[in-house]
Computed example of a mutant assay.
Amino acid sequence: MISKIFLNTVFLFSVLTVFSQSDTGEKNNTKLLKVTNKIYMLQGNGGNIGLSFGNDGIFMIDDQYAEDVEQIQKDIKKVSNKPIRFLVNTHFHGDHTGGNVALAETGTVIFSQSNVRDRLHKMIKTETKKISEAALPVVTFDEDLTFHFNGEKIYVFHVHDAHTDGDAMVYFTGSNVLHTGDVFFNGKYPFIDTENGGSVKGYIAALEMATKIINEDTKIIPGHGNLGTYKDLKNTINMLQTLNNRVTSAYVNRKTEAEVLSMTDLTKTYDDQGYGSGFITTEAFLKMLYSEVKKNRASFDQIDEANKAAMKKYEQMQKEREENEKD
């Protein structure tokens, strides 16, 4: 699970910086950024939060960690005193769902893709530290759903086996703003949770799907990182495709994981752009890619080995026949 992340950002949007004291006396930093007249992005210790403000109330996407909720609520009240009526969890990780209990207790209705509730429920049942079932989304969907809220249609849709197996993106159709959850780490190597249903193939497919829904003027709130653009999204797709192809080529040419990790030229272009300076290092990202390639090519490797065994058997039979003919 992603650990706490602090990402410094500078945008050409109005910025409200808020400092709060933690129990340890250390300062926590949150930034509330105006994306459009009604859509805001709130950054802090966890994943980026999306907020829609309007006459109907507040529509919220993700809620970071439990200990951050009080400060987040204070930040939100600087824009509106209306209630947070709806919350969408883009996936189940704690830096995006940690505030669920506190918000549910205030009357917020929580939505998610079905697999998110299932994974959260499993965590509640297995965690030694008791977690309230109030953390669970009360409304789930399999593929998509639509809200009509604050004067616009809000389209929430599932992307399969990408960051996890329960990812959802949220598109504010009138404001032309997309929240991607962790299916987009802007300018950094992403964390793809392959142990919980994520995959490189699904991650790329999800981003490609997003490009078909949005346009070049869309503002994009990523799971982590700076506010993004259509071009930033395309750059991430190109990075993933390029590096996945390079690692695949190295694997097919019998390169070991250690050898791939030593091939600094594979990622140099992207490392020079700062992709490896985030939560996921270059080494960690390459290890994940290599593991995925190995897993996906397992059937090909088995066929290759079977073909080699068959060829060896054929050559042996041929040799025996030639020897019999001599006799």
Rank of each mutant, 00 (worst) to 15 (best):
I5N: 06
L7C: 01
T9Y: 11
L12H: 08
L16R: 11
F19T: 12
Q21V: 10
D23Y: 10
I39W: 02
M41A: 15
Q43V: 09
L51D: 10
N55P: 03
M60S: 01
K74G: 08
K78M: 13
S80W: 06
I84G: 00
N89D: 12
F92C: 03
T97C: 04
V101I: 13
A104P: 02
T106Q: 15
F111W: 15
R119C: 01
I124T: 10
K125F: 01
T126D: 13
K130G: 07
A134H: 03
A135N: 11
V138L: 04
V138A: 11
F141A: 10
E143W: 09
L145G: 09
F147Y: 14
H148E: 15
E152R: 00
K153H: 02
I154S: 03
I154L: 05
Y155H: 14
V156E: 07
V156H: 03
V159N: 03
H163P: 06
T164Q: 05
D165M: 02
V170F: 03
V170T: 15
F172Q: 03
L178R: 09
H179I: 06
G181T: 08
F191E: 01
N196T: 07
N196P: 03
K201G: 12
G202E: 11
I204F: 08
E208S: 10
A210P: 00
I220H: 06
I220T: 06
L227V: 15
K231C: 05
L233M: 15
T236K: 05
N244D: 14
T248K: 14
N253K: 07
E259W: 07
T269A: 15
T282F: 01
L286R: 09
L286Q: 07
K287N: 09
S291F: 00
S291Q: 11
V293Q: 05
K295E: 14
D304A: 13
A306G: 10
K308T: 12
A310R: 10
Y314K: 05
E315R: 14
Q316E: 15
Q318G: 00
K319V: 03
E320R: 15
E323C: 08
K326W: 00
K326S: 07
